[in-house]
Simulated scan of single mutants.
Amino acid sequence: MKLKPVDSISGVAPKDFLKNYFVKGHPVIIKDFISKDSACWQKWSYDYFKEIAGNEKVDIYGREEESQNHAASPPIGRMTFGEYLDKISAAPTEFRLFMFNLLKLRPELKKDVIYNDVTGGKVLQWLPYMFFGGEGSATRNHFDIDMSHVFISQFQGAKRIWVFPNDQSDLMYKLPYNFHSIANLKTSSVGDYPGLEFLDGYEAVIHPGETLYMPAGWWHYIQYETEGYSISVRALPNSVSEKLKGARNLFVTRYFDDTMRKIFSDKWFHYKINTAKRRANRALKKRG
C-alpha cells in the first residue's frame, strides 16, 4: 500500500478550489475552512457540552469487524452524552459516536461555526454531523453512501485519515451491495488480501482548525490518534451519474441488501465475500 501526504492550502478563492480540487477530485487539507473568528474556538469544550447536553442519551459504537454484513454497524450500547465524554477523556477506548447530531439537538450551536465556503455555496452548511471517538478507535474502511463530497473539520484531538479513489474498490475487497471493504487496511495481512499491496492513496493527519476535503465517492479509513471530535459537512456530487448512483445507493441498493440478508442470511454474506475476493483477483490479473 502506498500513501502520499495530502497537500495543505489556505486563503484559496472558490474558483481556484473548484478548478484545482473539486472538479478534479483531489483531496486537500484546508487550513481555514472554519473561520478563526468562529465562537466555537472559545466556547466549546467537553465541560460546555456536558452542561448543555450531558443528560442526552446517545448510541455508542465500537469495533466494526463484528458487523461486516451490515451496511451500517449497529450500536453496541447507550449511555448519557456526559458519561461518554468522561469515558473518552479518562483512557483510550474504541467507543465512538457515529453521525451524532448535537447541532440538531442544540441548534444554537450552529451559530458558533462560521464556514469559509471554498466551494462558493455548494456546501450544505445546514446539514452538519459530529463524530466523537476515543483514542485508538477507528472506523471501517468505507465510502459515503450518497456519493457526496465531504469536508471533515477537526475541533479537538487529532485524526489520521487514509483516502483512496473509488476506482480502487475491487482491490479494497468491497462487499457488493455495501459500501465498505471486508479487509482492515491496518491489520489485515497481504497474504489473505493480496490486493491491499497495490492500493495507492493519501494520508492526512488533521488537528484542530484543519479540514480534510474528500472528493465524492472516495474511500476513507479514519483513525483517532487521540480522543476528540470533528464536524462533517458535505456538497452534492458534480456529475449526473454520481448523483444517480448516490440516489440508487440510498433508495434501492441498501434495501435490496437488507431484503436478501433477511431471506438468505449467512448464504448471502458468503456470496458477497466470495464475489469481493473474485473481483479482487480479477483486478490483480489485469495488473499483470
Rank of each mutant, 00 (worst) to 15 (best):
P75W: 00
Y84D: 14
L97K: 10
F164T: 04
L85N: 01
H142N: 01
E83T: 14
I145E: 04
G133N: 10
H149E: 09
I114Y: 02
W126P: 06
I145G: 01
L127T: 14
G77L: 01
V163A: 06
F155N: 07
T119F: 10
S137C: 05
M99D: 07
Q156N: 15
I76H: 02
K87G: 05
P165F: 05
G120H: 11
N116S: 06
L85H: 14
S73D: 02
L102S: 06
S67A: 10
G134Y: 01
T139Y: 02
K159N: 07
L97P: 07
M147Q: 11
V150R: 07
A72C: 09
F164A: 05
T93C: 03
N69C: 09
I145T: 13
K111S: 15
G133R: 02
Q154V: 03
F164H: 07
P92Y: 00
H149D: 12
I114E: 09
P92G: 02
F132V: 03
P92K: 05
F131C: 01
K122R: 15
R160H: 10
R140F: 01
Y129N: 12
R140C: 03
I152A: 01
P74L: 06
A72Q: 00
M79V: 13
Q68N: 11
M147K: 09
N101F: 10
E108P: 09
S89V: 05
H149A: 15
P75S: 06
Q125I: 14
F143C: 06
R106W: 04
M79Y: 13
R96V: 06
F100G: 09
G120C: 09
Y115P: 00
A91R: 08
E83G: 12
Y84Q: 08
V150A: 11
G133C: 04
G133P: 01
N141G: 10
R78N: 15
A72L: 03
N141D: 08
M79A: 14
D117Q: 08
N116Q: 08
F155Y: 15
K159T: 03
F100D: 02
S89K: 06
F100C: 10
V118G: 05
S89Q: 10
T93L: 02
K87W: 03
V118F: 01
I88Q: 05
R140K: 12
I145R: 13
S67Y: 03
T80W: 09
L124E: 13
K87D: 15
K122V: 11
F95I: 11
S89C: 08
T139F: 06
A158L: 14
S153G: 02
G136V: 04
A91D: 05
G121D: 10
F151C: 04
N116G: 07
S73E: 00
F143A: 08
I161G: 04
F95W: 15
S89L: 11
F131M: 04
L85Q: 08
R140T: 01
Q154E: 04
H70M: 00
A72N: 00
T80R: 13
A72F: 03
G157E: 05
A90Q: 14
I114M: 02
L103N: 12
P74W: 00
K104D: 15
Y84C: 14
E108C: 08
W126C: 06
S73K: 01
M147S: 06
L105S: 08
V118P: 03
V163S: 13
P128G: 03
K111H: 13
G121V: 10
A71W: 02
Y129A: 14
N69A: 12
T93F: 02
N69V: 07
G82Y: 02
K159R: 11
F81D: 14
